[in-house]
Computed example of a mutant assay.
Amino acid sequence: MKLVSILLITLFSTGNFTFSAQTAKDRKVTFNIKKGFSTINGQFSKIDYKIVLDKDGSETISGTVGISSISTGNAKRDKHLQNEVWLDATNHPQLVIQSKKIIRKKGGDYTGTFDIKIKGKTETKEIPFEVITNGGSKFLKATFTLSISTFDIGGGVVDLLVGDKVTVNVELPF
């Protein structure tokens, strides 16, 4: 029930490279959060991202996730998550992520510092991610957690049942 998103990506490229996800297939931004004794799983289908990696070290990764594209397998819950108390899709239709710094570690391992904006609130977060080559395809993979209280998400009686930590999984082809 929290947005997540998160939209990262990187390449092994040593030259200039720009990627737009508008034509990408198999991109995934999923999440899970505890609710009572169960776990709610969800995903977003409206994902857009762009990566620029320059050999001079001026890498940048940015992306958005459309709040209205949330899907938890329960249409009533999805609509509820878009209301003002939860993700406020009317006033804040997108989750936004923007890199501030990207460091290549070894192999396909990276660490990025990102500004994540949800519901008008911004958190700066360091997120490790990796680039995996599978056959002829490359994917960025990352798993991280966000605190919904940081973004003023939730409230009411249901809030007592919902955990504060949402786990976000990102898999983006490039």
Rank of each mutant, 00 (worst) to 15 (best):
M1W: 00
M1K: 00
M1I: 00
K2N: 10
S5L: 08
S5R: 06
L7E: 05
L7P: 05
L8G: 04
T10A: 15
L11Q: 10
L11P: 08
F12K: 12
T14F: 04
G15F: 08
G15A: 02
N16G: 13
N16A: 15
F17G: 10
T18V: 03
A21P: 06
T23Y: 13
A24K: 11
A24G: 12
K25Y: 08
R27F: 13
F31P: 08
I33S: 01
K35Q: 11
G36S: 09
F37W: 09
F37C: 05
S38Y: 07
T39P: 02
T39C: 02
I40R: 07
N41E: 15
G42E: 07
Q43P: 00
K46S: 07
K46L: 03
I47D: 03
I51E: 01
V52F: 13
V52G: 08
D54F: 04
D54I: 09
G57I: 12
S58L: 10
E59K: 09
T60W: 02
I61Y: 04
I61M: 06
I61V: 06
T64E: 04
G66A: 06
S69G: 13
S69K: 10
G73S: 13
G73D: 12
A75P: 14
K76P: 05
K76Y: 15
V85N: 10
V85L: 09
L87S: 13
T90V: 04
N91M: 02
N91H: 13
H92V: 09
H92G: 09
P93D: 03
Q94R: 11
Q94L: 11
L95S: 04
L95I: 03
L95C: 05
V96D: 02
V96H: 05
I97L: 04
Q98D: 06
S99I: 12
S99C: 14
K100I: 14
I103E: 15
R104E: 07
R104L: 09
R104P: 02
K105T: 10
K106L: 03
G108F: 13
G108N: 13
Y110V: 07
Y110A: 05
T111H: 03
G112D: 02
G112E: 02
K117E: 12
K117M: 07
K117P: 00
K119Q: 00
K121L: 07
E123T: 14
T124K: 09
K125Q: 04
E126P: 10
P128W: 02
V131R: 15
V131M: 10
I132E: 12
N134R: 14
G135L: 04
G135W: 03
G136R: 07
G136E: 11
S137P: 01
K138N: 12
F139P: 05
F139G: 11
F139D: 08
K141I: 01
A142E: 12
T143I: 13
T145I: 06
T145V: 08
L146C: 07
L146A: 13
S147D: 15
I148K: 15
T150P: 02
I153P: 02
G156C: 09
G156W: 10
L160D: 09
L161A: 01
G163F: 10
V166R: 03
T167G: 14
V168N: 10
V170Y: 01
L172Y: 14
P173A: 06
F174A: 06
F174E: 06
